[in-house]
Design a protein around this nucleic acid. Structure first.
Lengths: 154, 154
DNA sequence: TATTGTTATACTCTATAACTATA
DNA sequence: TATAGTTATAGAGTATAACAATA
């Protein structure tokens, strides 16, 4: 398993990472870490974390969705969703209304302010995506999406 | 922003996720979540978490690397690295030896048992990668690595 | 009997500050 | 003065169990 003999990190501080770099999982993690970091800093100025952005998008696209539906789509357990929704409602970005057919549930809606914040967030996310994909051509971007979809598929 | 009118998640529980699915960051996250989950369950039977695997690989490939070098490569802060290395040494998989030129530092080495566990882990990771990439052709795998590298590049 | 929302809780990961011993 | 390792601690993110109200 030794590759660098025994003087690694003694003379030059060069570390062999070929083995990890050959793993798709490791590459995926690195790319995702970088994208997530830029995503976070893009939204931080308006006080929106990645998870809140995803919630705003799904509620905005599916007005009236109930909490467990939102949690299912975003893979957030219902217990963990409660304080997150409280965060949105507490800031006046979303609201809970009684669900029409199920008195156990709450239907979720964006407030006008929530729509505004979502629009601003979407603009920031679009320029974030441009930045992250700057090195890729149009066809390369499509290819990337396809390949990622094949990996994520069920 | 409304797409589903107001009856989303009432009649059919179909949720619109087009907006999120159009974002490369979201696709990346989904793919990475799936790969990480399979990676974890592949190594769990031998008591190795993803982070411990990465540490074993880097120490094995760079015997004598000091803690801060290991932390730098894997993006783990030195404070968080201490209990992780303790975990490896406590299980007899790695050991700390005085660093030759720097009496502040510890040089890290795998024990023979650590080498064995790493070999077993590598075998499991290889079959994990095969499973994750089953839907991709050889050229597609190369393309994916390239595109991910472009995104992760500095 | 099962499900929705809620609370409480615990465990992992990550981030920061401060200390020691060396450089 | 700066750096390597360590400790303590706090904040996210995530997971499970239990309860009330309703299906």
């Amino acid at each position: 398993m030794a590759v660098n003999s025994d003087v690694a990190a003694v003379e030059p501080p060069e570390v062999q990472t070929n083995l990890l770099n050959g793993l798709v999982g490791y590459r995926l993690r690195q790319a995702q870490n970088r994208v997530l970091a830029d995503f976070s800093t893009s939204l931080a100025p308006i006080g929106i974390r990645p998870v809140l952005f995803a919630m705003l998008v799904v509620i905005g696209t599916n007005p009236g969705i109930i909490q467990i539906g939102l949690g299912t789509v975003l893979h957030i357990q219902r217990a963990n969703l409660v304080p997150l929704i409280n965060e949105l409602t507490g800031r006046g970005l979303a609201e809970r209304r009684p669900a029409p057919r199920d008195r156990r549930a709450f239907a979720l809606y964006l407030t006008p302010e929530g729509e505004q914040v979502l629009d601003e967030a979407m603009a920031r996310v679009r320029s974030h995506e441009k930045r992250m994909l700057a090195r890729l051509s149009g066809p390369e971007r499509e290819t990337l999406i396809e390949l990622l979809a094949k990996i994520a598929a069920e």
